[in-house]
Design a protein around this nucleic acid. Sequence first.
DNA 1: TTAATATGCAGCCATATTGTTGCAATAGGA
DNA 2: TCCTATTGCAACAATATGGCTGCATATTAA
Lengths: 125, 125
Amino acid sequence: MSNSNSSNGQAGFTLPAFAESGDALARIFAALGDPIRLKLVAILCAGGAFSITQLTTSTDITRQGVTKHLQVLAEAGVVRDVKVGRERLWQLDPAQVALARQTLEAIGREWDVALAKLKAFVEAP
Amino acid sequence: MSNSNSSNGQAGFTLPAFAESGDALARIFAALGDPIRLKLVAILCAGGAFSITQLTTSTDITRQGVTKHLQVLAEAGVVRDVKVGRERLWQLDPAQVALARQTLEAIGREWDVALAKLKAFVEAP
DNA sequence: TTAATATGCAGCCATATTGTTGCAATAGGA
DNA sequence: TCCTATTGCAACAATATGGCTGCATATTAA
């Protein structure tokens, strides 16, 4: 089987840094990988700080369901909560979103480099 | 409960477009939301086209497990496969990655706009 | 033809995820 | 104080996910 040229690891090219960035990055993407959570992020990035009850009115699920989604987002570091009175207000923390965006930019750059190498190889004299 | 001022929907501000972009966008993020799949993407964006057997050597799971991960990525449109001989070579399709990146950029922009509005409100005479 | 390689497909199992209901607890306002 | 609004917590069911084994199928090479 395969053997031979390998495919990476001890291969002939280096992987981009995010390949080994552990689970933190994957958790950010996974947190964004749900339609309801994506909508919650949209609300939070457009508005400011909202309570769970307020956010619930924007979805078709129960308050407790929204709470679970917010917990997923919070564990990924995408949102934060602040207690004020008897309410718990949620707001976006854009740092992790920026990290995810930089990763996707890195993928695009690597891809461009790979294309350029291929082009140079094909056009070699 | 809550009632009152709403929080969006029929609220006083407009949501960014990605809020209602259906499940396609969420599927892209979900596809990237796994450490193994993130590594596969890293390999593919750095290299070119690899067979399942080759990709398996880069992971700690079985070939069938890798196949399932590739299917998740394929259903999100992140990777494509090409049959050549008895092999099935996989390669990145950067279009969906670019779409995800644009979404994260939009979140960042919305956030900046919201901050600017807040600043203007606080500093109002 | 025969053997070896590469993949496909089905089924199984353990665990995680998503959403619910029900009840308790905390905090504000009349 | 008493009522109400907001949230927290626990248990539960249904489904999805991630990983495996086992076997079948195709394709290349000798």
